[in-house]
Nucleic acid binder design. Structure first.
Lengths: 219, 219
DNA sequence: TAAAATCTGTTGAAATTTCAACAAAACGGA
DNA sequence: TCCGTTTTGTTGAAATTTCAACAGATTTTA
C-alpha cells in the first residue's frame, strides 16, 4: 500500500492521520485495491451499497440512466477523491447510480461497515476517520442544499440571481469570479445556454449586475 | 430531563441507546433546553452553525428568504425530529436558513463539537451517538440526491415519470400509493399543479400509467 | 343531510423556455 | 499573424409552462 501514500494523504477521509497510522488502519479496515480498465463498471446501479471507493489512479465517472435510456453524467471523480460513501453509510438496498472507469484506473474499496463499527483494537485514528467521514457527509449536504435552493426556482432569472447571491455571500464581496463558463453555468443551473445569455444581458441592461465573462458584480 | 424521555427515545439520534445511558449522556454533552414562543427565531440565518436542535414539544419550521424578500417554507420539524445537524457538523460559517417556532415549543440544543469529539469519559454510547448521526446525514444525502434527480429534469412529464419510477422501485411494485395530493406533488416536483394534472391525463390516455387519485400503476 | 370547504381537471391566453442556426468575439496553436 | 476551434450572444419559431378562472367531484362539518 505504501506506493499509494501520496494519493491517500490528499484524500479527505484520511485528513489528520499520520502515514504510519494510515497504513496500519488500511490493514485493519481490510482495504483492497482493484484495477479497472476503461469503461468498466466499478459500482453497478441496483446493487446494495457496501463499499466506499477511493480513486488511486486514473479517474471515474458517476452516471445515471433514466427511463428513456438516456445516460447523464452526474460528475467526475479524480485522484484522491472518494465516492459512494453516502450510499454505503446509509446502507441503501439499491444504489441509484453507476460508477465507471473513465480511463484505466486503480480503485481502493473499503467495506463501510468496517469504518462505522470501530475495530476491536480500538485504534485512536479510527475516531479521526469517522470524524472525517462525518465532515465529508455534512459538507456534501450543504452543497446539495445549495443546489436544490437554486434549481427549485422556476425561472432562469431567479436561478441565476440565487446563484449569484450565493456566490457573493460565499466570497464575501459583491464582485467575484465564477468557476464556470456559460455552458457549464447553464448546465449547473439546469437551464438553456441561450436563455441564460439573454437573461444575463437583461440584468446588465437593467443595471442589476455587471458582467464580463466569468466576472460578475452585483449592484 | 427525565420528562423528555418519551420524546427523546423516538429521536433518530438516540436510537439503540438505553434510557439510563441517554440521561447520563445528555449531561455529558451539556444539552440545554430552551423555550420559544410562537414565531420566535430558534436559529437565525447568517450565524455560525453550532448547535444541533431537537424538538421536544410543539413544532418548528425551516424557512428561507430570497433576494426579493419572499419567504418560502422548506419544511416542518415535528416532535422528536432533529434539525440543523448538517450545518453544525459541516461547521458552516453562515447558516442559509432560519428556524422559527411554529407554535410555543421546547427545543433541546446540543453543541455539535461535544458530539463529534468524544468525551474524556470515553462513554461507549457516545460511539453509538456518532454512528446514529452518521446514518442520519447519509440518509439525508440519499433523499437530497433523489430530489435533485427529479427536479433537474426539464419538463413536467420527465419530473413526474422520474418520481413515479423512483416510487415504484422503492415500493418494489408497479402499483403504489403516493404520499401527496396533487398540490403537494406539484410543489415537490416544482411544477404547476394545472400542468401536472394535464400531464397525468396525457400519460393515462397514452396508456403509460393508470391513476386514481393517490394510486398509481406503471404499465 | 345540506352546506361549506377543499381538491381536481380543464381551458385559453400570456409568458417563458427550448431549440436550431448563425455570426461575432476570443482563444490557441503553428 | 493567420487559421481553425471554441465560446458567447442573438434571433425567431415551436414547444412548454405559468397563470387565472371555473366547474365538477369529493370531503368535511354543522
Amino acid at each position: 500500500m505504501k506506493k499509494y501514500l501520496n494519493v491517500l494523504r490528499k484524500c479527505p477521509l484520511f485528513e489528520q492521520i499520520e502515514d504510519d497510522d494510515l497504513l496500519k488502519m488500511l490493514k485493519c479496515l481490510g482495504a483492497k485495491v482493484e484495477f479497472f480498465d476503461k469503461k468498466y463498471t466499478i459500482i453497478a446501479e441496483g446493487n446494495r451499497a457496501k463499499y466506499i471507493g477511493i480513486v488511486l489512479s486514473g479517474s471515474a465517472q458517476i452516471i445515471q440512466i433514466d427511463y428513456y435510456g438516456n445516460r447523464s453524467i452526474l460528475g467526475g471523480i479524480e485522484k484522491s477523491q472518494i465516492f459512494a460513501e453516502a450510499f454505503a453509510c446509509a446502507d441503501v438496498e439499491s444504489i441509484p447510480v453507476t460508477v465507471i472507469a473513465n480511463e484505466p484506473c486503480e480503485i481502493m474499496l473499503i467495506d463501510c461497515a468496517h469504518i462505522l463499527h470501530t475495530c476491536s483494537n480500538h485504534c485512536f485514528f479510527h475516531q479521526q476517520l469517522i470524524f472525517n467521514l462525518m465532515k465529508d457527509l455534512a459538507k456534501k449536504i450543504v452543497v446539495f442544499h445549495q443546489k436544490i435552493d437554486i434549481i427549485s426556482k422556476r425561472s432562469t432569472r431567479e436561478k441565476l440571481m440565487t446563484y449569484l447571491l450565493m456566490m457573493s455571500k460565499k466570497m464575501n464581496s459583491n464582485t467575484f469570479d465564477i468557476p464556470f463558463n456559460r455552458q457549464e453555468l447553464a448546465d449547473y443551473l439546469e437551464v438553456e445556454r441561450s436563455g441564460l445569455s439573454v437573461e444575463i444581458g437583461k440584468l446588465k441592461k437593467e443595471g442589476i449586475i455587471k458582467n464580463d465573462k466569468k466576472h460578475f458584480t452585483l449592484m
